[in-house]
Amino acid sequence: MQSEKELFNLIKETYPQNPSHDFIASTEKILRQKARSMDKKSKAKKLTAISGGIILFALAFSWLFFFSGKEAVTKVASSFGAESLPAAVHENEPLVFIYHSHNIESYMPELDGNKVFSETKNVTLVGEEFSKALAEYNINAIHDETDISGILEERNLSFADAYTVSREVLQQTLNEHKNVKMVFDIHRDSSNRAKSTINIDGFDYAKILFEVSKTTDNYEANKAFALEIHQKLEEHYPGLSKGVIDKGVNPKNTYNQDLKDNSVVVNIGGVENTFEEAYRTADALAEIIKEMIEEY
């Protein structure tokens, strides 16, 4: 009777092909609310999982002491001791390591179609800017551009495993470059423009937030490090830093900050910022890091 194309056009004409605007907006709102409450619930669930983990840990610990206890512990202690000895600083040895566990996080205004992730235009560019700004102060930094999310896909892992993959990158760098003194894992967060932007001297900056995992032995050192950056930012760029928050307890995550002291997760801007705003913040951060290195 009709060609297939005609038939499908007829079908399309038969049914309203667009949902109502009210529906589109209200559904997004509902989904966001549910996502937030799920975050809370999953935290409660993880708590029970963690208590189970603690029992396992206790078992493992007692095993360690009953069987090969002392030897193992002294081994661990001596390796820690060796690592904490500051090696002689060579001028050209990189002092700063910058990487991105969630490398595809991006900024909506820079992308088409309300997207917040991109494989090409993403937070990696902000890390690059930070690294370049440090270079201008003669501070040698390694900027890692590994496509973590690409590796996740290759290995058929979920996004939750991002820190496991980025850990490999960090570990390798730390093995090869013993003089790295600071580690920045740069992300962007999901806050809206009002919360993620500040105007300083007529320029919009993407606000910055530091996150420190409470579940590592380096917590005290990392927290002090992040607080120092925060305070210096407050002096030079009041309001730019949202501060330092403790994280990583529920769900438990070290964010790989156990591998090196002076490690911190840095969120630069939210989904509604632009690269320009994020770059300004990266430049400001570099200025503060320069000041800190001079004081060391």
Partner: peptide
């Protein structure tokens, strides 16, 4: 595009990208 650290942003992004196709499938169904 999925970030479990941030479910809210992930679901919002996924929803915005796919709601129209899903709706069109369902309205015909």
């Amino acid at each position: 595009m999925i970030d479990l650290k941030n479910l809210e942003a992930s679901i919002a992004a996924i929803y915005n990208e796919h709601y129209l196709d899903v709706y069109r499938f369902l309205v015909c169904f």
